[in-house]
Amino acid sequence: MNFHAVKAIYLFEMARTIRTLFQSVVSPVISTSLYFVVFGSAIGSRITEIDGISYGSFIVPGLIMLSILTQSVANASFGIYFPKYSGTIYELLSAPVSYFEIILGYVGAAATKSIILGLIILSTAGLFVPIQIAHPLWMLIFLVLTAVTFSLFGFIIGIWANSFEQLQIIPLLVVTPLVFLGGSFYSIDMLPPLWQKITLFNPVLYLVSGFRWSFYEIADVSVAWSLTMITVFLGVCMFTVWWIFKTGYQVKK
C-alpha cells in the first residue's frame, strides 16, 4: 500500500477545496439559506405540519441530502476529470499507485468535503428552524455512506466524461431531478397513489427517508430498506469502478 501517494492525492484535492473555499462552502450555505427563506418561511408557513414536524424542520434532512449528493458528484467528477483534461493525469498513470489507492485519494477527499459541507448546512439550518436529531450515530452513518457512494458515482462520471458538457449532463439530467422527486421537500404520502409507486423506484427516496428518520423518526420507507438500497448502490458503483480500471476504459489508450 502506497500511503504516501494516497495522502498526496488527498491533500492535493483538499488544498483545491481550500483554495476555492468560496464556491465550495459559502455558495451552498447561501443557497441553503435561500431555500429556508423561500420554503421554510414564505411557503412553509402556509403548509401544515407533516407528521407533527413543522415544514421548515421537515425539509432540513432533504436539503442536506440535496447538497451532499450534488456536491459529492460535482467534486469527485471534477477532481478526476480535470487532470484528464489538462493532461496532468500522466503523472498519476506513471506513478507506482494502484487503482484502489487512486480512488481512495480522490473519493476520500470528495466525500470528506461533502460531509463537512453537510455539517455546515446542518448548523446553518439550526439558525432558522428547531432541529432535533434522534439518532446521531445513524445520522452520521447515512451521511458518510451517501457521501462516499455519490463521490464514487461522481468519480465514474469524471472518468467517463470526455468534455465539460458530459461532465455536467449527468448531474443536471439525473441527479438533480432524482433529488427533487425523491421526497426531499415532501412526504410521499402527499402524492397521488400512482406517483407514490413510481417514486419507489427513485433511489434517492431511500437515502432521504433513512436520513430523515435519523432526525425525526419519521420515514417513507423502512430504515432497513434505506440501508439496503444505499449499500446496493455503493456496491454497483464499486463494481463499475473496478470494471473501468480492469478494462482500462477511457483512462489508458
Binding site: 501517494a5 495522502k7 498526496a8 492525492i9 491533500l11 496532468t88 500522466y90 503523472e91 506513478a95 507506482p96
Partner: peptide, 25 residues
C-alpha cells in the same frame, strides 16, 4: 512529458512535494 502539462494554481514547491508523495517517498 513532451507536452507542457502542469497544474496551474499550485505553488512550485507544493507540486514537487505532491510528485514525491505520489511515488511513495
Amino acid at each position: 512529458p513532451q507536452e507542457l502539462t502542469t497544474d496551474s494554481f499550485e505553488s512550485v514547491k507544493d507540486t514537487l512535494a505532491f510528485s514525491r508523495g505520489l511515488f511513495g517517498k
